[in-house]
Every structure is written in C-alpha cells, then in structure tokens.
Design a protein around this nucleic acid. Structure first.
Length: 431
DNA sequence: TGGTGCGTGCAATAGTAGTT
DNA sequence: AACTACTATTGCACGCACCA
C-alpha cells in the first residue's frame, strides 16, 4: 500500500501529457499508437529507478508487478517494445520542446501545491560524463565565443573613460581569438575537460537551480563541459522569472559564479546575492590584490607601504588601471614582494563593475547572508547527489546535446515527482 | 596496445492494425 | 485491396571491462 508508485499515481496528474503531445500524433488515421501517457510513464520508470537502458527497462516491466500496475498493464498484456521509445525520441519528438514542457508542468504542479516559493533560489552545476571515448577525437580551430554582455560593457567603458577625461576607444572590428579544441568523434556536442585531480575526457555540464522551500528543482540547463558555469546563469534566472512568475528575492551561488557580470546583473535586478568566495594567490611571494585598499572618494589605491597608486586609464576589457610612481617604488623595501616589473611600476586593476562585486561580498558577510550561504550546500548538493546515486545521472545514456538535455530534464522531473508525491501523501495522512 | 565479448541506442526496414 | 501511421525486428557502430 505504501509503494512509491502508488503515491505518484495518486498525487500526480499525468493527463496533461495528452494535451501537450496531441499535435505530434495523427488524430484520425493509421495504426493506433501506444498511449502517450503510458510511453512517458515507461520513461519515468526508467529514471525513477535508475534503469539506464531501454532494453533493460522493457525486461524489468515484464516481470515487475508494481511497474505493470503503474502503466495499467495486466499480467498477460504485452509490454511495448523498447525501440518504440527511441523511435519516438528521434522521429516524433525530435526538435520539439516536449521534455522541457513536461518538466515545466511538474514545476507548475509543485507551485500549485505551495511547494515552490520562487523567492530564494540556489544554483550550481555538475559534470556528467559524455557517452564518448576520450581518445576518439579530432582537433579543430574555433573562434573564442564572445560574451553576451559585451555591448553593455563597451558602453560602461566609454562612460568611464569620459568621466576620467579620456578619449573613447576606437571600436575594434572583430574579436577573432582562435583556439584549438578537441572534438569528440562519437559525440561532437560534448566538451573536452581538464580539471585538477579529476579524470579528463568529454563531459557535459548540468546547471541546476533549486528552490529552497522544499528543494524543488526549478531549472535544468545542459551545456558542453568546456563552458564556464557563469555563462548561462543570468538568462536561465530570467527564464524562471518569466515562465513561473517567480519573484526572486535572494540567490546563493558557488564560487564559480563570482564574476563581475553576474554580480552586476543580480544587483541591477534587485536580488540579494550571496556568492562563495575564492581567494586567488598570485605568483609566490607577491602581494595579493586585497592587500591594496581602494579609496573610492579619491579614486586611488593605497599599497601596503602606504604609497598611492593613481588612476591611469580604462582598458577595453573594462579594467581601470591604477599605477604607482616608479621613482618612489624604486627604493621601497617591499619592492620584491610587490612587483617584478622591470620599470618598478606596480599596476593594480579594478573593473568598472567592481562595486557590484563589493556589494555581493558584503552580503556574504552579513547575518542573513551567512544563513543563506549555509543553506546552499544542503540543498543543491543533495539534489545532484540524488540524481547521480539514485537516478543514473553519473553518465550520459545518450549522445548529442538534445538527448543529454532530455536525460537531465527527465531526471530532474522524476526527482520532483518523487518529492511531491511523498510530501502530499504525508499531508493527507496527517489530516 | 590490441583483441574479445557483451551491452547499448540508432538506422533501416519489415510487419501490423487501423480506415477508406 | 490500398493506404497510412504506427510498432517490432534486425544488424551495426560504439563504449567499456577484461585480459595478455
């Protein structure tokens, strides 16, 4: 009586699948299809129990009474063939948003049950090993991808230079920075990754956002493994605000997201942001940057020897440069701890959006910031752990970005369903 | 490093259950 | 019987564990 599938069946309404899928089926001709609800329930079963193969799934359904019951199959009913799943994936569902739609619908059901607040969100990403041998690759020259905040930054740089009485920079034609990357022969969509102390090879990145109220997963996004965490963050945040009408008040993020565009983006959206801190240690022996204090009023940096570094210019990348007077530094006793530059001139840079970063830094040190930050680990990390341990999300079952996206969305949807079913069942029991 | 055996999803296509 | 839109079958390339 207390089987998980009974709770899922009781508390989750799957009838929406019929409506979402209707335009993809022929209404009045041909051989009748397997009921789409049954088809998707089969897929869900695979993810619920971490059955990573469609053949294996077919065999499991044949012999498992609970699975048959969940699908509405009698003891002697024929289980649909496993290839029907892959046939539908690459024929009927190809190029559609059906998996995203289903994930979204489950989130909406969670919202209607008051299990999702949409006020405090936590995001992180994890690597998922691609279904591709790390030795099978070709090398390719690609252009460095240009960041999407580039226009905004150019405007900020122009503004900043104007304020400091500098001439505007000549607009540069095209940014053509070439780099060589490894492209997998078996799954060209994945990205080659080298990380300290971890196995290298082809990976995807799964970016997730979790609502802190009941740890409901509210967003899933997959990119190749060589894309930085922070790149898709703001657009995914906005997606949630639009799609689910979230009024986001606060977010907590891992140190990988501590970049000026994100700090700036969150501040301008009026969202209280707490981001983990990473202290960089520059070349051994040299002073770290935080030893230089910024005086906003006078627009100067003060070095550990109390010497002033004055504003010099603002460069194309948005960094203000503050330089010391080499005549003064030449005789400084701290010189060899400060700079190795041949002309004894120390240059400290400060991004034009550095103020947003300072704002985030102060948030983290505040009382509510500390509280929120502590919550981060126990929510998002647990969500990823469950996905990997329980639902087979350590490896990509399928190849190609759309397919990996399908796997990520279905894994998350199933985690949400499980959470919802168990929670609602407990509520009912109490009443 | 190269071979073997096994398991996987995919592609091609054969087969099937409806309607006309 | 012809046509249609599905499902089922089959063979294949690939990944991976294992072994020498």
């Amino acid at each position: 009586q207390d089987h998980l599938l009974r709770k899922v069946d009781k508390h989750i309404d799957f009838s929406f699948i019929n409506e979402k899928v209707r335009p993809l089926y022929c209404a009045d001709n041909g051989r009748p299809a397997i009921d789409p609800v049954v088809l998707f329930k089969m897929i869900f079963l695979g993810y619920f129990y971490g059955i990573r193969s469609e053949r294996q799934l077919e065999r499991e359904i044949q012999t498992n009474l609970a699975y048959r019951w969940f699908l509405g199959l009698g003891l002697t009913d024929k289980v649909p063939d496993h290839t029907t799943i892959s046939w539908n994936r690459r024929t009927r569902f190809k190029g559609t948003n059906i998996f995203q739609d289903i994930f979204d619908e489950i989130v909406l059901q969670g919202i209607s049950h008051r299990m999702v607040g949409g006020r405090v969100l936590v995001s992180d990403s994890t690597h998922v090993k691609a279904n591709a041998n790390k030795h099978q690759y070709t090398k390719q020259q690609v252009l460095q991808n240009t960041k999407d905040y580039v226009d905004e930054l150019n405007a900020a740089v122009a503004e900043d230079r104007k304020e400091h009485g500098k001439k505007p920079l000549k607009p540069r034609e095209e940014v053509t920075e070439d780099k060589e990357i490894k492209v997998s022969k078996t799954d060209p969509d994945s990205g080659y990754m080298i990380r300290d102390g971890k196995p290298e090879g082809f990976f995807y990145l799964d970016h997730r956002t979790v609502d802190t109220k009941y740890n409901f997963i509210t967003d899933v996004h997959v990119t190749p493994g060589n894309v930085h965490d922070s790149v898709p963050y703001l657009s995914r945040l906005d997606r949630q605000r639009e799609r689910f009408k979230f009024e986001v008040e606060a977010v907590a993020l891992d140190s990988g997201y501590l970049t000026t565009p994100i700090c700036r983006g969150l501040q301008s959206r009026n969202i209280f942001a707490v981001i983990a801190h990473r202290r960089f240690h520059p070349k051994q022996g040299l002073f770290p940057k935080w030893k230089f204090t910024f005086d906003a009023e006078r627009n100067i940096y003060v070095c550990p020897a109390s010497h002033e570094l004055g504003y010099r210019t603002t460069d194309r990348k948005g960094y203000r440069q503050y330089a010391s007077d080499p005549e003064h530094c030449k005789n400084c006793p701290l010189l060899d701890q400060c700079t190795q530059s041949r002309n004894h001139r120390k240059v400290v840079t400060r991004h034009v959006w550095e103020d947003s970063k300072d704002w985030v830094r102060n948030n983290r040190l505040s009382k509510s910031g500390k509280q929120l930050y502590r919550k981060r680990k126990e929510t998002i990390e647990r969500s990823f752990a469950d996905a990997k341990e329980l639902h087979g999300f350590r490896y990509c079952r399928l190849r190609g970005l759309p397919n990996v996206r399908e796997q990520a969305l279905m894994t998350a949807a199933v985690q949400n369903m499980k959470k919802m079913a168990i929670h609602l069942d407990r509520l009912e029991y109490r009443v």
